[in-house]
C-alpha cells in the first residue's frame, strides 16, 4: 500500500526514480557524482622495532581524525610497509593526514606526532612524501626537537636532517621536515541496502578492496560512515547535520531519497593525495560492494554532492562504465 499524500514535501520509498548510469551485478548505480574538496596532506612513515609498536603509534596518531568538521584533521593508515620499504629497515606503517590549510596541517602533524609517536616505545618518524612532489615543507622534528630541552642532537644523514631527541628508552629519531602535497578530501559513495546487515557486509567488502589502493585513506571507523551529513542545520550553531534524505527512520517525514526496498545506507568517504587514486579507490570499492548483486541485499549505489557548487573535484559514477 502506498501513502496517499505526503505532507510538507515528504516522499516515501518507491516514489523516487533514480537516474541510472548503469548496473553492476544487477545493482543500479545512480548517474550522479561525488563532490570533493581540495585539502592539504602529508604522509608520515612510522617505524618500530616490531610491527606491533609501529602499529600502536600509527593507530594512536590517526585516532579521532574522522572529519575536519570537529576533529581538525582527517587521518588514517594508508598501508603497512615491509622492512625493505622503510628508511631504517624496520617494520613500518604509513599514515596520511589531511587538513583544510597548511597551518592546520602543521598544527595537527606536530601534535599527533608529538603525543602519539614520540611517546611510543622504539618508534621513529620519517617523511613519506618524495621531494619531487612536495609542494611545501612542514616542520616535523624541527618542531618536536624542543622536547629535548637542549639535549637534542641534529644529524645530517644522506642529505636529510634528522633530530635525535633523548627519551627514556634511548632516542626518538625524527626527520626534520615532512612534505606537504595538495590532496583531495571528500570522495564518497553510498551503499543503499535492504537492511543493516546487508549494508555492513557490502561496506566491509568495499573497504577491504579499497585498503589495497595506495595514496588514499578511509578516515572513518572501519572505513565506514553511518551518519552521512548535509550542509547546515535548523540549529544556527551547527554547520552540518544528519542527511535526513537517507535516514530510513525519517521516511514519510522528510524528502527521502531512498529508493524502494532500501532500509539502510552506509557511506564510504575517501581522502586521497590525487584524484586518480580516489577514482581508483571508488571504482574498486563500488565493484566490491555490488558483488553478489541484489541477492546480497544491495539495492543501489549513489554518491553525495552539493550540486557541484562547493567542491572543485567531481567523481562521476558513470565513469565506472566508461
Amino acid at each position: 500500500m502506498r501513502a496517499r499524500a505526503a505532507s510538507r514535501g515528504a516522499r516515501v520509498p518507491g516514489t523516487i526514480v533514480m537516474k541510472v548510469a548503469g548496473e553492476l551485478d544487477g545493482v543500479p548505480v545512480e548517474d550522479t557524482f561525488a563532490e570533493a574538496f581540495g585539502m592539504r596532506a602529508t604522509r608520515l612513515v612510522i617505524t618500530g622495532e616490531t610491527r606491533a609498536w609501529a602499529r600502536h603509534a600509527a593507530v594512536a596518531a590517526t585516532g579521532f581524525a574522522t572529519s575536519v568538521i570537529a576533529c581538525g584533521c582527517e587521518a588514517g593508515i594508508e598501508r603497512e610497509l615491509s622492512v625493505r620499504e622503510t628508511p631504517d629497515g624496520r617494520p613500518g606503517i604509513s599514515i596520511l593526514i589531511f587538513a583544510m590549510s597548511s597551518k592546520d596541517l602543521q598544527k595537527h602533524l606536530e601534535r599527533r606526532t608529538g603525543q602519539c609517536v614520540l611517546t611510543c616505545p622504539t618508534t621513529a618518524a620519517f617523511n613519506g612524501v618524495p621531494n619531487e612532489v612536495a609542494h611545501e615543507w612542514l616542520q616535523l622534528g624541527g618542531a618536536l626537537r624542543y622536547f629535548g630541552d637542549g639535549w637534542q642532537i641534529s644529524k645530517l644523514i644522506g642529505g636529510k636532517r634528522y633530530w635525535r631527541i633523548p627519551v627514556m628508552d634511548g632516542e626518538f629519531v625524527c626527520e626534520e621536515k615532512a612534505g606537504l602535497v595538495k590532496g583531495i578530501g571528500g570522495g564518497n559513495f553510498l551503499i543503499l541496502a535492504a537492511d543493516g546487515a546487508s549494508a555492513r557486509s557490502a561496506a566491509e567488502r568495499a573497504v577491504a578492496a579499497m585498503r589495497k589502493v595506495r595514496n588514499v585513506i578511509l578516515p572513518f571507523p572501519g572505513g565506514v560512515v553511518r551518519s552521512g551529513s548535509k550542509v547546515g542545520s535548523k540549529y544556527k550553531t551547527l554547520i552540518a547535520s544528519t542527511n535526513d534524505a537517507y535516514c530510513p527512520t525519517l521516511v514519510g517525514l522528510t524528502r527521502s531519497a531512498l529508493p524502494e526496498g532500501a532500509g539502510a545506507v552506509l557511506e564510504i568517504v575517501i581522502d586521497g593525495l590525487d584524484a586518480g587514486s580516489i577514482a581508483k579507490a571508488m571504482d574498486v570499492g563500488i565493484r566490491a560492494a555490488c558483488r553478489g548483486g541484489t541477492g546480497a541485499g544491495v539495492v543501489g549505489i549513489t554518491a553525495g554532492n552539493y550540486g557541484g557548487k562547493l567542491g572543485p573535484h567531481h567523481f562521476h559514477l558513470k565513469e565506472l562504465f566508461a
Binding site: 642532537i153 644529524k155 644523514i157 634528522y162
Partner: peptide, 13 residues
C-alpha cells in the same frame, strides 16, 4: 653501550 637508531642510519649511509 648503545645500538642507536640514528647511528644505524648513519652507518648505513
Amino acid at each position: 653501550w648503545h645500538d642507536l637508531l640514528a647511528i644505524r642510519l648513519l652507518l648505513e649511509s
